[in-house]
Amino acid sequence: MRYRSVIGMVCIGMMLLISPRLVASSEVGKTAPVFELKDLDGKKVSLSDFKGKVILLNFWATWCAPCKAEMPSLENLYRSFREKGLVVIGISVDNSEKTVQSFVKEKAITFPILLDKGKEVSFDDYGVIGLPVTFLIDQKGIIVEKVFGEKRWDSEEVKMKIKRLLEGR
């Protein structure tokens, strides 16, 4: 009986873990805060470098299981739409750069990964609490969606949404 209730709680936990939470957020409709962070090669990258593009800004960490789980689908989405103008940026809040580097290499991630060790961008600018959190930013630099939790980024639903945004609709 005790085991059943434990299993039940595990199942509830898993369901909540799997389902992304689309919560109406105060950031949606506002201009995405501009920041400058270093990438894994130490090169400074600014959000303004991607002005006029549709941007998917993903906050993540290597210790965050749902973040790691959604990475392959994020990479798939990026590969499908990068030629059409989609920019995917991953912002890692990890303390160790080496851990991020080996994860990126292992998973063959090709989109830019920036480091926010001090949490200046995640905590201060974007008010991120839990991970992963992804901000969808349109060509005008406005946050159009904030997605909490793990999501299947290469699903047809997401692809349609990105396609519409890329067409300026």
């Binding site: 873990l17 939470r21 105060s26 805060p33 906050f59 960490a61 210790w63 965050c64 299981a65 749902p66 973040c67 809040v93 949490k119 200046e120 995640s122 905590f123 201060d124 600018d125 008010g127 991120v128 609490i129 839990g130 991970l131 992963p132 959190v133 909490f148 939790g149 793990e150």
Partner: peptide, 26 residues
């Protein structure tokens, strides 16, 4: 409702007093 400057100030004040602020997995 806090501004980025206020959040930064709060984070630094925590740090100054020996605290760390961390995110949690959703």
């Amino acid at each position: 409702a806090m501004t980025p400057e206020e959040r930064k100030d709060l984070r630094n004040a925590f740090k100054l007093n020996g605290y760390d602020i961390n995110h949690m997995p959703c």
